[in-house]
Design a binder for these strands. Structure first.
Lengths: 155, 155
DNA sequence: GTTTTAGTACTCGGATAGGCCGTGTCCGAGTGCATCTGG
DNA sequence: CCAGATGCACTCGGACACGGCCTATCCGAGTACTAAAAC
């Protein structure tokens, strides 16, 4: 049960893009800010763009920017865009295999159901928190961060 | 974000061991019931034994049995035993790297905090469901399963 | 001075290798049972 | 017939390969800007 680190990168980049505003920021610049491999970060941002969270513009003065306001981007959107839409627990229906299989039974696997309940709670909590919420948390503990970020990216 | 399939195997095996009762069941027999690789399933059951969920007895008439009653084994216990105690989202503190790093800031990463809230909800739901609960669900939809399992494993 | 045009530098985007963890397999240590042997 | 010893079959337990996905990288297509040149 391990989440790719691209999720962390993506959320931080969304925060920065929100603070910068409507100005496009290249992937290379975001990578430089966090000292990350530029090409790979670009890959993650592409995933966000495919999911409709970011808009990408090529050429000089191009880059990425938020496709919607931070209030309308949830952490669930980001996680789903990077990690894919699949559930963490994938029921392979082992109860249908081997001598104990009951092919007449078409009910849902109880184990899958129980795991699904837990995973649904996880997704619900992710969907309840928006990028704007995280921005507010950062600004509450570090009020100078937004301006620092904006200045660094706009120079 | 992908959970190892060993978790599914482990939960199903816990159900079967609970239905069988206090009789020890070898890993090979459990593997045969679901048509799974025996040695690998043994590995997973070893993990459950290390976590204190099962007791293992070697030699003839040996095997695995539940170390506690099904009411006192939660799905969180099983998942934690198989997948390990680590959190799915591991904050690597990229905000401390690169030119934007603020080394004077010792506050907690807001992204990690937000992800932690969601993951905590997931763990809470897993801890709220016991093996006995899943057993009850199965018996509700398929009342004949417990006896079928008991008979197959005790013959 | 204005317009056209060619060049150039910069950006994303997808196609291409490397490394680590989950998956699968194997053999050895230990235990309990059954059998055999001696009294 | 009974007690002890012996061999054996069975089980877990940890050590050893294989493959797929995450990580990382490179190069090409497309675009906007710049600058020069022609009118």
């Amino acid at each position: 049960m391990r989440m790719g680190e691209g999720v962390e990168w993506a959320v931080h980049c969304c925060l920065d893009l929100a603070w910068v505003g409507d100005r496009a920021v290249p992937a290379a610049r975001l990578a430089a800010y966090y000292d990350l491999p530029a090409a790979y970060l670009n890959k993650q941002l592409q995933a966000l763009a495919r999911a409709g969270l970011l808009t990408s513009t090529p050429g000089p003065r191009g880059g990425f920017r938020l496709a919607r306001t931070p209030e309308r981007i949830t952490l669930m959107d980001v996680v789903s865009a990077i990690e894919g839409p699949d559930h963490a627990f994938r029921c392979t229906e082992i109860r249908r295999r081997g001598p104990g299989a009951n092919h007449a039974d078409h009910s849902r696997c109880a184990v899958d159901q129980a795991m699904g309940v837990a995973e649904l709670a996880w997704r619900r909590e992710l969907a309840a928190q928006t990028v704007a919420d995280v921005m507010a948390t950062v600004q509450r503990t570090n009020p100078d961060v937004p301006d620092r970020v904006r200045r660094w990216f706009t120079t």
